[in-house]
């Protein structure tokens, strides 16, 4: 195994985590990671050794994700995206999620892909604003407003699901 591939291998857990936060379904997320790795291999020469492969790989994966979102929208399959994921889609059997985790994962899926990516990039993956803006290819101001809107939206959705849960409890 050469040096570059070894460095990329070390990034796979992070790429999978990011993909999972973007797509929820485990297989779809791993498909995205696999596409990313395949594209990275083709462009291996574009990446200088010594430079962290993380930003490079996240940039490749983000482009693939955006392409995929566009495709879904164009084909009119946007309704396949779980807007009310809690109801519309059963949690994958192999994933043991607490109620809190499931609610926040569902809520994250319900916000717009652009805001989701920006928020996850900073809040989970720990990139700086400058790094995240660079990876997502947007100005810093756009990134900041996506993060702020994303957080507000997420909070609203979490409040909604908490409310629904309490109504269910009352109905029992």
């Amino acid at each position: 195994m050469n040096e570059k591939k070894a460095a990329i291998l070390g990034e796979i857990p992070r790429l999978r985590r990011y993909a999972r936060s973007l797509l929820r379904d485990r297989d779809s997320a791993d498909d995205l990671v696999q596409d990313c790795l395949e594209r990275a291999l083709v462009r291996l020469d574009n990446w200088q050794t010594g430079e962290s492969p993380r930003r490079w790989l996240f940039t490749i994966m983000h482009h693939l994700f955006i392409d995929q979102m566009r495709k879904v929208n164009r084909r009119g399959e946007a309704q396949m995206l779980p807007l009310e994921a809690g109801e519309a889609q059963a949690a994958p059997a192999e994933q043991v999620e607490s109620i809190a985790s499931r609610e926040i994962i569902d809520a994250l899926q319900a916000i717009s892909p652009d805001r989701r990516a920006a928020l996850v990039m900073v809040a989970i993956e720990g990139f700086s604003y400058a790094e995240a803006a660079n990876i997502l290819g947007v100005p810093a101001g756009t990134l900041m407003s996506r993060i702020a809107r994303g957080r507000e939206e997420l909070r609203g959705l979490l409040d909604d699901s908490a409310r629904r849960r309490s109504i269910r409890v009352v109905e029992k």
Binding site: L9, I12, R14, R16, R17, Q34, S101, I105, I124
Partner: peptide
């Protein structure tokens, strides 16, 4: 909560097909 929800992914073994 977000971090906790996805923390487990980091501990999963890398799937064979990705390797």
């Amino acid at each position: 909560a977000l971090r906790a929800a996805f923390a487990g992914v980091m501990d999963e073994p890398v799937p064979a097909r990705l390797r």
